[in-house]
Amino acid sequence: MEQSSTSALLQGTVLDLASDVVSALRSGDHVRAGSTLTGGGAGEGVARAAVRVLGADALLPSVLLRVPPDPGQLAVFKDAVAAHPPRDDAAPAVVWSHWAMARTLRRVEHPLTGPDAAEPAAEPGAAWLDEAGWQTLTHQLAVLAPLALPGEECAVTRAARRRPVDVARGFVRAVRRRDWQQAAGAGRWLTLLDGVPDTLGLAAGLDFVRLMGGSDPRVALQLEAARLMPAAVLL
């Protein structure tokens, strides 16, 4: 079996999973029928890896809409967190996306006491973002879009809040490059930041990204999150 077809299957599963999340965010409930994780479509290992790739956003409907996750989905999510810990030499974005998953898991499992009740791993550092130019900053924030949540408080969100203009510039750059995934992720962040220049035209920009790139469920997921963000309160 070639590695390329393995990763093609993984990417396909990530897209299916993202579609599930988009449907759930749009309908306000879980899509139980035909769910990628519980429908037995993909093998366990692939599903687990796909959840790891989609990251904390796999449980975004539960977090944003305050509905309890499907037990089967939750189990796969837990497995994904356990099976794919970051390596010692992992890039900061990899470490942070894993941290975000662990944090989401605690939020979902301890909704009453909040995440602080069982705070495990120490928060990673975000110095790499502070040292990054605006291009890299935006790219990395888009990769870490699952951390863009109302009321989220961590080093990455603080780094983003310090540089709203730079993220807005990154959004412009991503649209110019037709990198819709980055544009959508940056757009999601921008809905949370104060100090974004009005002239950016964010609302029209998000509509434009949906028009151009919304057929990719990973793009649609970010745009749905951005749509719900202003009204949402963190679980």
Partner: peptide, 28 residues
């Protein structure tokens, strides 16, 4: 699928590259 599963299990497919992807080239 089972075969794929094995591959993923045994090689623990390098998803780091997927988790921190390089930027695609700009399209102008």
């Amino acid at each position: 699928d089972k075969v794929l599963e094995e591959v993923i299990h045994t090689e623990n497919i390098d998803i780091d590259a997927v988790l921190d992807p390089a930027e695609p080239d700009g399209v102008f």
